[in-house]
Write a protein that binds this DNA or RNA. Sequence first.
DNA 1: ATTATTGTTGGTAG
DNA 2: TCTACCAACAATAA
Length: 298
Amino acid sequence: MPELPEVEHTRRSLERWGMVGATFERVRTNDARIVRPMTPGTFVRRLTKKTIASIDRKGKWLRFILDDGTKLFVHLGMTGWFFDATGGAVNHPLQSASASMKSDLLRFERVRFDIIHERIRNTVIYVDPRRWGRMILSKDDIDAWTELGPDPLTDGIDVERLVQVLTRRKKQSIKEALMDQTVLAGVGNIQAIEALWKAEIDPRSRASALTSDEARVLARAFEWTIRRTLRDLASDHAGAANPFLVYGRKGEACPRCHATFERIELGGRSTTFCPRCQRPLGSVLQHARSTTAGFVRD
DNA sequence: ATTATTGTTGGTAG
DNA sequence: TCTACCAACAATAA
């Protein structure tokens, strides 16, 4: 289900459900795909009776630190969810977390955690229809975690570093480059689309054309879309409708300039953008200055 | 029946 | 070693 904001929301939900400080009383799974290369039996044996000291996140990965120093890494893939058996599901940005949807998704239960925290028992269920998610138990940090770039929310965006790493991407579009997890951890298709719109940057521009000034605008745009998505996920109407301004809105009017949004493909991923007010890198600031003249600038 | 979907990875080529 | 491209993974939903 996940990009950075959804995974962060999931992390906060797991904390709210009492997972930090809890002990795994019983773990059940028979899904050899999600826990690979460990077998389900080994996974269950290694996790049972361990206590969770903390849960942190980098990009789209969650990391559970256990009391014996081992770590459980979790990636939600495209369709991974956590459910609290007694309460609701983690909110989904694009779909309702209604009771009917929950019971529908429970057909795809893959891992079940029975936990106990200060004598209170709870059950947390991992559901994942497409089974692209992963759960990896390891003594050390795994490569997939270590190799991630800085996380925009926890580390912030270093504008000069961004320019420097993107300068090498001579062939790649700015949008594809931003979705590379070593460039910025946690940026996926939706957040890239929303941030490029906010920054008024044409997603087809070569990544290497990004200037420092444009990178600064882009960094602010990421902060804007990440905070906005987090706020939406925490609201009680989350999942009621598409909360995004651009993603999934091909054919609709751009809220800024009222041109019609177009959909193209970049790096095999669907990309919605405004053909009028999203400009090629190199001309973005001049354009922004001319179009915001007389208006308040953020 | 066809097309699209919020992500990563492993192979290949340069 | 780094960059770039693509098929594969699985299960729906429109």
